[in-house]
Design a binder for these strands. Structure first.
Lengths: 209, 209
DNA sequence: ATAGTCCGGTGACCCGGGTCACCAACTCAA
DNA sequence: TTGAGTTGGTGACCCGGGTCACCGGACTAT
């Protein structure tokens, strides 16, 4: 698969010419539309994706109940696929593209060799582990303290920040799914947040203050 | 600080002679009694510990409420201290020795160089990140599903497994602290588990079936 | 013996949030 | 126009578990 080196270079400024060259010959680029399931639960991973452009969200599931763990933005990668790719164990999470995205796919069996040869790649995965570790710690803390109103408010702020939009057009049902709760609860809590002046609900969507 | 190479070698069979040599000259060994706070919340990390012998437990805290995240056993390390050491950011967790333990301390400012030079060390930290990632995912899932009885039962099983004892002599209060709940709740749920035949409570402690 | 402390046990109560049952408004296809 | 699906809004109810108050037994120090 001939991959245009110039296409990926702008997204990976830290990578050496040599590394980019290797990636160009052995990797591939995939464009995915919004809302596509990129990684399934229980799936074995043969290609490790790095998000070049767009936004991918990662979920865990436990008995019908789902929870958004974190987002993967540009030049970020999916730790679970890295981990699952290396140890040839199935994925415990699933990932969905939130926006149309461009993914760089690296063959899992090569990664082990590459991280030894290219410090930049090694660093990237260490940084990703780090980032996800702290994000999951945040998730645990917010679950531990409970408080649906706080969790929902933080969720909206994060979403607004990532999308760069002050007004979010999103269904209550989807919010509920991403927070692992019920739709009615979201409706109730949103009303409460509005009364507290933290948000405003219009026809256009939810505005975060 | 002169460190006996022969002392640490048996615990680190995967490390090359050269790596052990470097560790021996630049690292140090510390013996800690049970119940000692090894890493405090908010603390900056200058030495990255690797547990050679014993057992260390890692907690998060959010407003007076604590939760046991995972245990660090022999030849395992603390990801948070690694991460905090590298990025010179303060620790967000705290760690306490569950048993008397022997720790190998590596200077944080050298680690970055060492993981490049010694693949065995690089691997160790990758494996640790991996392990903690999946453990934290388990924690999130159990918090998400709620169910105190399940969480408590799994906690007892894990504890029993790690200590190699079928009967645990432990205070209800401590269980409550490690699960982030209240003592009364633990008492109640233990009774329920006993009625279900999953455990037995005697004067000697709690027996897991 | 007395008092203080730690531990476990229990009942009463409350609260957050999950569930259920509906309903109104809107959109879209037939 | 009609009917079906989607979305949001609401009230009623229940349940797990956190909180409070209190008690009795074991142990210890004085």
């Amino acid at each position: 698969m001939p991959l245009d080196l110039a296409e990926i270079k702008p997204f990976l400024p830290d990578f050496s010419q040599e590394l980019l060259q290797v990636i160009a010959t052995e990797g591939s680029v995939m464009d995915v539309p919004a809302g596509m399931e990129i990684l399934k639960e229980g799936q074995y991973v043969r290609m490790i994706p790095i998000v070049l452009q767009g936004l991918v969200k990662v979920f865990t599931r436990v008995e019908e109940k789902e929870l958004l763990l974190y987002y993967i933005g540009s030049t970020q990668s999916c730790i679970m696929s890295f981990s699952a790719g290396l140890s040839q164990s199935p994925s415990r999470i699933f990932a969905i593209s939130e926006e149309a995205s461009m993914l760089l796919l690296l063959p899992a069996e090569k990664i082990n060799k590459w991280i030894r040869e290219f410090p930049a790649l090694n660093d990237l995965f260490f940084r990703q582990y780090n980032l996800r570790y702290t994000e999951m710690l945040d998730t645990i803390n917010s679950l531990l303290f409970g408080r649906m109103d706080q969790r929902l408010y933080q969720y909206l702020q994060e979403k607004s920040r990532l999308k760069g939009e002050k007004i979010l057009d999103i269904r209550h049902k989807q919010i509920a799914a991403e927070l692992g709760t019920a739709r009615e609860v979201v409706t109730r809590v949103l009303k409460k947040l509005e009364q507290e002046g933290k948000i405003r609900q219009t026809e256009a969507g939810i505005e975060i203050n």
